[in-house]
Design a protein around this nucleic acid. Structure first.
Lengths: 87, 87
DNA sequence: ATTAATTTGTTCGTATGTATC
DNA sequence: TGATACATACGAACAAATTAA
């Protein structure tokens, strides 16, 4: 395998495709949460970690997290981290 | 029971959760006071004891006590200890 | 009277997160 | 992109006062 930290071979961001990178990342994270990589009230990787893992700008990562928050998938605690929503 | 010195099985500090450790400890101590572990004008465990019991840094324990003082739950007497507020 | 142990007070440095500009 | 700000957490060291031996 290429890396233990990656979801799979299909989780690379396609910067040229029709789906925006931030939506691609949101889909990846949603899938990883559904898969159980991180349980309820557990922290997902920090923004910096996601920047490194997916080669995206931090602003893009934050845009992605904002989408997940709006969807109720995760919630952010200032100065603490981003966590998987319960239920 | 796992220990006579512990409040219960749910009083372990979660260092990864959304709630900061110092707030978790404050909640635990507040519950123990409400339960009557220590009455009015009685000393709660020393900072060092709390450090040992909950596996936290002393600075974190102090941050927690500071919160309880601000809430009026306890009061501190330098070189003496921290006591449960009357009433 | 001395010494040692205990307990809170204070400060510094390092690290990790998110927030903001 | 980059820099700075805030809040939190850990570790360490030392001071000051009290208490116990």
């Amino acid at each position: 395998m290429s890396s233990d930290l990656r979801f799979g071979p299909d989780d690379d961001i396609d910067h040229e495709g029709p789906v925006t990178p931030y939506r691609q990342l949101a889909a990846i994270l949603t899938a990883r949460i559904a898969r159980g990589d991180w349980g309820p009230n557990r922290p997902i990787p920090s923004e910096q970690r996601l920047v490194q893992e997916y080669g995206l700008a931090r602003s893009t990562v934050r845009r992605s997290i904002r989408l997940l928050v709006e969807e109720g998938t995760v919630f952010v605690v200032p100065q603490r981290g981003t966590f998987v929503s319960p239920r």
